[in-house]
Design a protein around this nucleic acid. Structure first.
Lengths: 341, 341
DNA sequence: CTGAAAGCGCTTACAG
DNA sequence: CTGAAAGCGCTTACAG
């Protein structure tokens, strides 16, 4: 069966191409009776527009902005690199992707940066901080007609179009199950380190983790969470104190970044073998420590997938075509030394 | 910067559109000097053709065939459904995807089916059996100009264009690590069940599994592998015998399908809690047993990702455009009850 | 409110 | 060996 085209629909409805186009794209100024006639022809022929032709004909450039943290950690650098690769490919398809860097721990600064984004923007993909000014800026952008997707950490309750990231509660629960199972029936204390308690993803992971430990592993005691600002040095000092304070520490879950700091502290303490250590993100150094055995398991969100997904979602939104939900679901990857790529 | 077009290149090289097109697509009959001039203009302008326009202009329909096993197990049904969804979407982009079913355990039958495929086919995606006649048929198709990708189980040494699936050695190693770590320091016997020893993916998983157990978990003894033909009933009887023969069985790794049979045998034996059980594929029943706790971990290859990847790879091959390697790498997913979607 | 015509960036016969 | 022209299936001004 040959493809049904706009031509076919126009003939079937007894109108011109332009009119079918108007109906198809919901443009105003068509008589209700005509709309109906065209619509019924479309239905009768099971017509779907050719996306390729429509993009070509529109001949329009899309412009998306990616907002990432400055002074970024390894994961954020990875994510940026993936966005740059994606940008490179989209460049030849009339899509321009540019970058802005902002201090992710400063809500006001992030909000200001968002407000100052060029007015002709089609879409924004951003790592969000859970802060009222940021939420406000996201809603303002949306009202201005810009499509916004959140990355890594969500802003529910705002009018962002989509969240590109994992279910962080589930990620925390996953970490707890791995830690609990790897410990077998050992009992003892478990230390948690987060970047900041105003990062929604960190809070959610912590919550999920504690929930599972309490319910499933009563022999484990979760110590109060400590903050390390996702910075290797600070995290190292926090881990050092944790190890010194608790000689019966059997596990560490690093909710955020700065994993290299924990590795250093564990190495120095000579307790790397006995402490089960779960961390996030398959960065090159983390990968090395996983294979070496200091990290027992990594939980990952695929940076390449996220970058491609964000770009696809923004583009689909602007073109008015649906997304494939399964393709845009970011999985909670678990890596042990044997399944790392 | 506006997009560079064929027009620009033609002007820069001082030739017509048609000639640039010939050089771009490597068509014969262009003077070497002209080729050079055009090539240098392309390089100078960093020109990349607009894939959308080129597809539109070619106005050509692609036809791909997906070859799947008959009497399929849950995973294969899942995979087929994902291919059907993909087919539905591609239908409106001038790509037709049709299906053939063959007994996956019968090499001759599979080879015959491949040989009988319509001559105008552009590509084939197939679940391969490791059999000389199948390898031969794959090479024949390739020589005929058909692009072949293997699915799930590879046929290395043939001229297939790509393998869409996971590294099955690594999957086996991953299963062993999870089993070993979940067992803590318990010692005992571990049972392996495979579908068939002429399925390359099964052999590879077994090999990877045994390698890690021998090297890392000397307290575990891997029993000789048993075959269950990926059939629930047969697998159930095999598992039953395994449990009866070895009262000190501490772990089971199901290399292939038929997992429901093992669940039934474990339930009946009353030893479901104490035996650590690792299986493959996140099918609906497996998902249920994972959450229930009878299955301790699942190793998965994402069916949706595989179907989309196979289609993208076939299309890219026919259009002569490159793929994005990271996007086509099928990951070895690990699922515990907490990170299932 | 509706239509004829030009054009998006390529490819494909057809001439020469 | 090379080029002019038509066309792929849409969208967009421009008329009316």
């Amino acid at each position: 069966m040959a493809k049904t085209t706009l031509q076919d629909v126009a003939r079937e409805a007894g109108v011109s191409l332009a009119t079918v186009d108007r109906v198809l794209n919901g443009r105003a100024g068509v008589h209700a009776r005509t709309v109906e006639r065209v619509q019924s022809a479309i239905d009768r022929l099971n017509y779907k527009p050719d996306r390729l032709a429509s993009r070509l004909a529109r001949g329009r450039d899309y412009h998306f902005e990616v907002v990432l943290p400055t002074g970024a950690n390894d994961f954020m650098r990875l994510l940026e690199q993936e966005f740059r690769d994606t940008a490179e490919r989209y460049m030849h398809e009339r899509v321009r992707i540019t970058f802005t860097h902002v201090d992710v721990f400063d809500g006001e600064a992030l909000a200001t940066a968002l407000e100052r984004l060029p007015a002709d923007l089609d879409g924004v993909a951003m790592v969000a901080l859970d802060h009222p000014a940021v939420a406000e800026a996201v809603n303002m952008l949306t009202d201005r007609g810009v499509t916004v997707v959140t990355l890594v950490s969500d802003l529910p309750g705002t009018r962002r179009a989509h969240f590109v990231g994992i279910d962080n509660y589930a990620a925390g629960r996953t970490a707890a199950t791995l830690l609990g199972r790897f410990l077998g029936h050992r009992s003892g204390k478990v230390g948690l380190i987060a970047g900041s308690l105003s990062l929604r993803d960190h809070i959610e992971r912590q919550y999920g983790f504690e929930q599972v430990v309490q319910r499933e592993y009563p022999d484990l005691e979760v110590l109060p969470i400590r903050e390390g600002r996702d910075d290797d040095d600070r995290v190292e000092r926090v881990a050092e104190a944790l190890l010194a304070d608790h000689t019966d520490l059997v596990g560490i879950y690093n909710v955020g970044a700065g994993t290299a700091g924990i590795v250093a502290a564990l190495d120095r303490s000579g307790r790397a073998r006995e402490v089960v250590f779960i961390a996030h993100e398959l960065t090159p150094p983390n990968r090395r420590q996983l294979i070496r055995g200091t990290i027992d398991a990594l939980i990952n969100q695929d940076a390449g997938h996220m970058a491609r997904s964000a770009a696809r979602i923004l583009l689909a939104a602007r073109e008015g075509v649906p997304i494939v939900p399964g393709q845009e679901r970011i999985r909670i990857d678990i890596f042990v030394r044997d399944n790392v790529p």
